[in-house]
Design a protein around this nucleic acid. Sequence first.
DNA 1: CACTCGATCAGCG
DNA 2: CGCTGATCGAGTG
Length: 186
Amino acid sequence: MKTQSVTLPIFTSDGQFVAHYSENGLVELDFPSVGRAPSFHCRRRGNESQISPTSSAPARDSSRRLLQTKIRHWHRTTEAALKAVLAGGAVKALPPLDWSGKTEFQKSVWRALRKIRCGQTKSYGEIARAIGRPRAVRAVGGACGANPIPVLIPCHRVLAANGKIGGFSGGLNRKRELLAREGVSL
DNA sequence: CACTCGATCAGCG
DNA sequence: CGCTGATCGAGTG
């Protein structure tokens, strides 16, 4: 089964985010690009996406519509979650996340990140201990940096052990702002 | 394989 | 403070 990826915008007061979905869930969330980000028609990728290679044309069409309906529903959830966090609040629900192709280590780090609640922070070392790899401290930083779903998977809540800011792939200003909105002071 | 590079950290001066 | 060594996952050739 080939994947059909769908790209949808989310307009917020912080700019236009972009969410990417597969048939299995949310794959990626992009920060607003510095320039503008046009072209928001649904985009297909891979060779023609057969949900089932042997299905008849009407059956394919019906599957495709079901998928689109499902994705629209996920997208509403994503949108609500994103706006909640941007407003310094807590996420009520997330759509299913598609982490296929990622390593076990990364997934375990990201699972740990999800447990950090709004307004809380942890250090890279604490995450390392939480996943049972107490010495993989720098590697945890690497996995945070590889987080495909920033903000919703709250890697911005991970600080350096000395209380300093640490890094952020989306830019430290964003990290500071997100934390400030959650009431975290450095 | 054998490298290199980090969003780290604790220890030491 | 700043420097250094230990540590380890991921990426590259």
